[in-house]
Design a protein around this nucleic acid. Structure first.
Length: 821
RNA sequence: GCCCGGAUGGUGGAACUGGUAGACACAAAGGACUUAAAAUCCUUUGAGCUCACGCUCGUGCGGGUUCAAGUCCCGCUCCGGGCACCA
């Protein structure tokens, strides 16, 4: 019989077409079936798929196909996060309209996704730059506006004075403009904010619901990002008698305050008249945020000349402006206690400010003059009036109570998280649906007038300013309230808004409303979300925020959008992340051409567990290809022996063992996919099985019993391969004479009884060191194991004459004999 | 700097709840087949010692807990992700 070559190119095209034509991955809500919604983070259409995408979507495809085989009604959609900076950069550089650039990229990348054999329901494709999607961004915006969840305030942006334009952080690295290298300054602009702080407690509380199915590190990062802290707001007084509130988590140190620090943006600083001081403050303001708060950067500040009075002891304190104090956190001002705060300590040393000890270490009293760094541990209050002698943890409470009683303090909760600034001074984004009317002020567009369409007939003049600003046809409109002439908002929304609710839109992409309640209720929440760990905080927090918001608007039933989360690692080559700038990228297309999509998929999953970084290796890819070729050859050679209907027949010892290995493999692979999400070990197990069955003599397969076992292997092994390498699996399945496609087949079952090996190896240890290995029947009792150990020749030799202190036996594993030394 | 991770042979990784470290691959070396090459198949492969039975060491570094530590605890080093306008 002539054997067929593994012609992956033809096979893959053939099955991709079949799946597509038969609508294999289309999904319909059906209340009678259990649903499973698998979602991968949608890509930014940057031009070509990179290996990170391939990895992400391969993992998703495995889950979707596996769950479908498990009998679930699976939703597995794909879309495009298609607004953003790169399209504008391309427009400026090559004068291609952003829309064209983006649409071309989408077409190209969609074809690439199809070549990988990913099973998506393309009828549900969501593209954020299209107005039928972004109109709902605008609808959500005005709905939030009406509920007081949107407000406008001044906020600093990176500004290039030479280009006269706003810069993204990425464009302002090292404080220099990316295009002209001018020094970047901070400029205040009036911008729109979403009140995510109002949801801070809800976002924290929601963690309880998801914590068992999300990586712990993501929950921790989010919790720290939200940064809830309880403390005391203390109203210090300016010399002029006005209140000067600060927030502190350390009220116990309030008697140790020796100076105050205020953010350089603080409005109070308008009172400063000294030109030298004013100039210094300006300079602090223009330091990029990342630098200001970085502790490796020197803390800087200047005495403003203003004085503040501590309400606890009446002391007069100097007020500094300091770069490390943030206007956005607390009240934009802090009390500084150099003796008990590391940062304050360094600042005080630098500017020669005195320090005062108020918490002493009872074990070894502190000499304030010899203090090398702040004492931040617990201790006992000193120099703290009536609070002396209290443990500082108690003093914290007592001092807070005292301040509240005296009327100059209030216990409050503070969050590190700030409201979400969504205004972007850019063209390629969703227009913010507001107009500015001279009479009525900021007015939202009426719902019936949505969407506010982003004009696409725009010209870029080689600079990065948004063309909307000079487009009269867009700018001029009438006020929805009074009908008089008004001007449109030209800022667009942060693209994170687009990606904060797209998972919901997939459930009902063609609905005339934002969502169809029936379909949203059926499909949501997402059962399994998959994406890069780099999104642990921003995207995943914003998406949770929007989900809660949509819940509160009565649009969806669940508060949490993603039941289970898998964060996959990066794709690394030669020690660093694959990136264009490093020149270490590998183009998926090249590898598909050389080995086929199935090999790429298999390697992606085999090279490392999904959560960890994956080291790309060309040689490793060859290994995956070799495995598929080996399987192909085996099936090719033995397909004619396959019998669908067969008598079980008595088996030889060898065949029995092979059968055990088969059932063991199904058991382990099922568990690896379903419970552990560790595909590399699942594949390793399947490789072992192939290695085992390849050792069987050809003649043995040809016996009646051999054919039965062989048929059972083929019947279970090929479907098991299907989620990983669907094309080759389908082709081999067809080779057996089966006519139904594998995607409609159930996942193979296994017999618990048959999966247990007859014998297992255990070890005998003496004082924890292995001294012998023996093979024992499975199911042996503890007593039998101990007896065997003590009777073992080598063990007896080595224990002879020594006293046995105790014997530890782990069933099925080991016996450890502890001897007196 | 702050928050969160990671480190296991020449390489990617395995070891699931503290219980046989190195499964499965890659690479390398040797061999078979071949006129030859490719492909395929077989053998060896953590380090050191030993004629051998075996022994000692070994999971980034330094300590600790335990009969037993890659796994738990304390203290470090290095690498990576995030830090709010890249997505």
């Amino acid at each position: 019989m002539k054997e067929r070559d593994y012609n992956f190119a033809d096979i893959e095209v053939k099955w991709q077409k079949k799946w597509h034509d038969s609508g294999d991955f289309k999904s319909t809500a059906d209340a009678s079936k259990k649903k499973y919604y698998v979602l991968e983070m949608f890509p930014y259409p940057s031009g070509r798929l990179h290996m990170g995408h391939v990895r992400n979507y391969t993992i998703g495809d495995i889950m979707a196909r596996f769950m479908k085989m498990k009998g679930f009604n699976v939703l597995h959609p794909m879309g495009w996060d298609s607004f953003g900076l790169p399209a504008e950069n391309a427009a400026i550089k090559n004068n291609i309209p952003p829309q064209k650039w983006t649409a071309d990229n989408i077409a190209f990348m969609k074809a690439q996704l199809m070549r990988m054999g990913f099973g998506y329901d393309w009828d549900r494709e969501v593209t954020t730059f299209k107005s039928d999607y972004y109109r709902w961004n605008q609808w959500l915006f005005i709905t939030m506006f009406e509920r007081g969840l949107v407000y406008k305030k001044k906020s600093p942006v990176n500004w290039c004075p030479s280009c006269q334009t706003v810069l993204a952080n990425e464009q302002a690295e090292n404080g220099v403009c990316w295009r002209c290298e001018s020094k970047v300054v901070q400029k205040d602009l009036s911008q729109w904010f979403f009140k995510i702080t109002q949801y801070a407690d809800a976002l924290l509380a929601g963690h309880d619901e998801i914590k068992d199915n999300w990586p712990e590190q993501v929950i921790t990062m989010q919790r720290n990002w939200i940064g809830r802290s309880t403390g005391l707001q203390v109203n210090f007084k300016l010399e002029s008698g006005e209140d000067f509130p600060i927030f502190t988590t350390r009220p116990d140190t309030v008697y140790g305050v020796t100076f105050m620090v205020i953010a350089p943006e603080h409005p109070l600083l308008s009172r400063v008249t000294d030109p030298h001081v004013k100039q210094f403050i300006e300079r602090l303001k223009n330091q990029p945020m990342a630098e200001r708060t970085a502790d490796d950067k020197e803390k800087e500040g200047i005495d403003t000349g203003l004085r503040v009075i501590n309400p606890f002891n009446g002391e007069t304190l100097p007020l500094y402006a300091g770069n490390f104090v943030l206007m956005e956190y607390g009240t934009g001002a802090i009390m500084a206690v150099p003796a008990h705060d590391t940062r304050d300590f360094a600042f005080a040393k630098k500017y020669g400010i005195p320090q005062k000890l108020v918490i002493d270490n009872p074990a070894s009293p502190i000499d304030i003059d010899k203090l090398a760094d702040a004492y931040t541990l617990e201790g006992v209050n000193v120099n703290s009036a009536q609070f002396n002698g209290l443990r500082n943890t108690q003093a914290k409470e007592k001092i807070a109570e005292f301040a509240e009683a005296q009327g100059f303090g209030k216990r409050t909760v503070n969050y590190r998280i700030r409201d979400w600034g969504i205004s972007r001074q850019r063209y390629w984004g969703c227009p913010i649906p507001m107009v500015l009317c001279d009479t009525c002020g900021e007015v939202p567009i009426l719902e019936k007038d949505l969407p506010v369409i982003l004009p696409t007939d725009v010209a870029f003049n080689g600079d990065s300013r948004s063309p909307l600003n000079s487009m009269e046809s867009f700018l001029n409109t009438t006020c929805p309230k009074c009908g008089r002439p008004a001007r449109r908002e030209t800022d667009t929304m942060d693209t994170f808004v687009d990606s904060s609710w797209y998972y919901a839109k997939y459930t009902s992409p063609s609905s005339e409303k934002i969502l169809s309640p029936e379909e949203a209720d059926y499909w949501l929440p997402v059962d399994q979300y998959i994406g890069g760990i780099e999104h642990a905080v921003l995207h995943l927090l914003y998406a949770r925020f929007f989900s809660m918001l949509m819940h509160d608007l009565g649009l969806i039933k669940n508060r949490e959008p993603f039941k289970r989360l898998l964060t996959q690692g990066m794709v690394i080559k030669d020690g660093s992340k694959m990136s264009k700038s490093k020149g270490n990228t590998v183009d998926p297309d090249e590898i598909i051409n050389k080995y086929g999509a199935d090999t790429v998929r298999l390697f992606m999953l085999f090279a490392s567990p999904p959560q960890k970084d994956l080291d790309w290796s060309d040689k490793g890819v060859e290994g995956s290809f070799r495995f598929l070729s080996r399987v192909w050859r085996f099936v090719n050679k033995h397909a004619h022996l396959y019998q669908k209907d067969r008598a079980p027949g008595a088996e030889t010892e060898k065949l029995k063992k092979i059968r055990t290995e088969l059932h063991r493999t199904v058991k382990i692979v099922t568990n690896d996919i379903e419970e552990r999400m560790q595909y590399n070990t699942a594949i390793a197990r399947m490789m072992e099985l192939i290695n085992t069955i390849n050792q069987v003599e050809e003649s043995e397969w040809e016996t009646v019993e051999g054919r039965a076992v062989l048929s059972e292997i083929l019947e279970r092994f090929i479907p098991m391969l299907f989620p990983f390498v669907p094309h080759i699996a389908e082709e081999m399945w067809e080779m057996l004479g089966c006519t139904t496609t594998l995607s409609g087949r159930p996942w193979p079952e296994f017999s618990q009884e048959l999966s247990i090996r007859g014998e297992s190896e255990i070890v005998f240890q003496l004082n924890g060191k292995i001294r012998a290995k023996v093979s024992v029947p499975s199911g042996i009792t503890k007593e039998e194991m101990e007896k065997m150990a003590l009777e073992h020749e080598r063990v007896r030799e080595m224990t002879g004459g020594k006293e046995i202190v105790k014997i530890i036996t782990v069933p099925g594993k080991l016996v450890n004999i502890v001897l007196k030394v």
